[in-house]
Structure formats: structure tokens, C-alpha cells
Design a protein around this nucleic acid. Structure first.
Lengths: 189, 189
DNA sequence: CGTTTTACGATGCGTTCGCATTGCAAAAAC
DNA sequence: GTTTTTGCAATGCGAACGCATCGTAAAACG
């Protein structure tokens, strides 16, 4: 056999190229040839690591999902209120990393509207997010319907992410909106 | 010439088929052949009324935009608070009409992230929406930063629309979230 | 050393795509 | 009644698509 190669690493490289393509030109710009070109490899290699285009896209989806989760895990543990704020801001395209990931998330989010197979993992991730947010809210402001507030916050930052992506809302304004929203949730329970 | 035909009506019929396709299978399911089949006409006719696929998609975008605007205009004029609530709920996929339009709006919204030509009209529409919402907020609750609240509300309902579309949030829960959010904005300015 | 297995690169196939072209029936214009 | 113009239907074209197949260099394995 040829030199034993790190299978997962190769898949990750190709998955990265897929994400870059989605971020720059949207989901329908993803073709085996474009991905190969973006990754700087041959089309044969792409096919070697992914049996179908669909499997490749699913892998890319799990890749960015895990990246977002990793960024959350890397946040410094501060008091609950600061952590809550940090997580919400992390979902917005403010840092370079988030700015690269947000368009990809947006594309998959829209695709999930017409593709049930994407909806399932997305709902699960959102559900965990809501539970976590609710926990933080309760820690800061006991009493009140924390879960409802968590769902509202998540919908809010999701929409805000899109508004920032299409240039409707500036990053600075987005931060201000998040802070204002948070103060409302945490003070007038 | 053949029987004089209502040009605009024919374009509308085809545009309708485009929207139905987008709602059911996403933007990338839109091809000249699929549109022709969905509209029950020949591909030649589609080409006769739209020089390019892009022009057809742009027309479909303006079509649903005008429909949404029409539904807003058709709302009964009540007191500002009720009207504000009605408009926000109208953006969610609750009524049959809104449920048909929301997936199309979501698809165009996501496309606008990577297609600047869509972003421009979208930003303008959102801008007008924010101004209108701010006016209503001021009417109900003078003082406070109405425009900021309007932007937050719009981001919130945009995100909520997506959550409902992917089945994360039930329509009933969405109404509850909107009401709760509105009460916060209007009472704890 | 020889065999086997891995990791590709290359090529080709059938389909679908957007779009251009052509032809023609029918009604308005004269 | 002829001419002209409109509204299509039909067909074709080159490009791009996902995917299958085949060939091969090379390293692990016995």
C-alpha cells in the first residue's frame, strides 16, 4: 500500500475546502470538481474519501458543528452572566473564526428548511443549546420561564447572525443589541 | 400576432411556479425545465417570458416580496400595539399564505449572504420594516431607543421564522414567544 | 522478494443544465 | 387578403454535473 495516510486528516482538509466554498459562493457552488480545485487536490482523491457528494456535505456540516462547539468549550469560565453573553456573541460573525463559520451555518440552516435529514441534527444541537442557555439564565436570574427566554434568545441571535451577514446590521450594533436584549431578559424577568 | 395575452399575468404564473419549487425543494431545484413542468407549460414559454434564469429568480423574489407587503397592507387598522403584534405574527409561517411564503423568503435570505445583488433590495425592505416598527413602538411606548428595539424585534422574528420552519419551535410556541418579547419591549422600555 | 493492499490519477459515461436557434400557427394591421 | 408581428414549441449545443471504472505507483506484509 502507499504510505499510510491520516484518513481523518485528509477528510478534514477536504471538508475545510467544502466549507470555504459554501462560505464564499453558497451551497450550490459545491461540486466535486470545485471542491477538488479549492482543496488543491485531484477529483479522484475527493471521491476516494467520500463515496457520494451527499456524504461529503454531511461531513462538512458535522465539521463546522463541531468547530462551533469547540469554540464554546474554549471560552474562559467566568461568572454565568459573562459566560452567557460570551456564548451569544460567539454565535455572531464577529471574530475571524466566527466570520468564516457563520455563512456556512446559515447555508445549512436554510437547506434544512427543505431537507429533513439536515433538520434532525440541527434540532438536536439547538435543543442542547436552549437547555444550556436556560441553565445559565436560571443561574443568573432564578425564577421566570428560563426555557422560554432561552428559546427567544436563540432565535434572536440566529436572526441577528443573518442580519449581520447580509450587511443589514453592523458588528458593533449587533453587540449593542445583544447586550440590550440580555439586560432585558436578566433584569425584567 | 397570436391572441394578445396578458404579459404580466403569464410572468406571474411562472413566478408562482418558481416560488412553489423553492418552497418545496429549495433554490437549487429551480431549473428552466422544472419550472416549466411545475407551471404546466413548455420550456419555450418560460424562455419567452424570461430572458435568463437569473431574471426569472429576481422576478420571483420581487413577487413574494410584494406579496408579503400586500399582506401587511391588508391587516385591519387597530390600535398600534395590536397592529405591531399582527405584523410580527404575519412574518411567521402561521397562516397558510405565510407558510407558503416563508420558505421562499428563507431561501432568498440565505442566498443573499453570498449574492450581493439580492442583499441590496433585502436591506432596503428590512430598513423600511425597521422604520415602521420603530414608529409603532414609539406610538405605544414613547421614549427609549425605539429603533434599536425595532431592529432587535426584526432579528428575533427572522430567527423565529427559521426555527419554526425547521420544526424546532411549534407555531403555538412561536406566538407565545412573540407575545412575551413584545410585552418586554413595550413595558420595560 | 514477492504478494497484496492502499491511495490515488485519469478517463469516460449518461444526464442535466442554461441558452440559442429555428420554425410556425394565428391574429392584429393594413 | 395579404402582410406583419407576436407567442410560443421544438430542437440542438456545449458545458458541467455526479459517479463508475480502470490503471498504477508504492508501501506494508508474509
Amino acid at each position: 500500500m502507499p504510505k499510510q495516510v491520516d484518513h481523518d486528516e485528509r477528510r478534514r482538509q477536504i471538508g475545510d475546502a467544502v466549507c470555504r466554498l459554501i462560505a464564499a459562493r453558497g451551497l450550490d457552488a459545491v461540486s466535486l470538481r470545485h471542491v477538488a480545485a479549492e482543496a488543491g487536490v485531484s477529483m479522484g482523491r475527493v471521491q476516494h474519501y467520500f463515496a457520494t457528494k451527499d456524504e461529503m456535505l454531511m461531513f462538512a456540516f458535522e465539521l463546522i458543528s463541531s468547530r462551533v462547539a469547540a469554540r464554546f468549550g474554549a471560552l474562559p469560565v467566568e461568572d454565568p452572566a459573562e459566560l452567557l453573553r460570551a456564548v451569544l456573541l460567539e454565535l455572531l460573525p464577529l471574530s475571524p473564526a466566527a466570520r468564516a463559520e457563520a455563512p456556512v451555518l446559515a447555508a445549512f440552516l436554510a437547506q434544512a428548511v427543505v431537507e429533513p435529514r439536515l433538520g434532525e441534527p440541527l434540532r438536536q444541537g439547538n435543543g442542547e443549546m436552549v437547555a444550556w442557555l436556560a441553565g445559565m439564565i436560571t443561574a443568573v436570574r432564578p425564577g421566570g420561564d428560563a426555557e422560554r427566554d432561552a428559546m427567544a434568545l436563540l432565535a434572536f441571535v440566529d436572526g441577528l447572525m443573518l442580519q449581520v451577514l447580509i450587511g443589514q446590521v453592523s458588528p458593533e450594533m449587533a453587540v449593542e443589541l445583544v447586550d440590550h436584549q440580555l439586560s432585558r431578559v436578566l433584569t425584567c424577568g
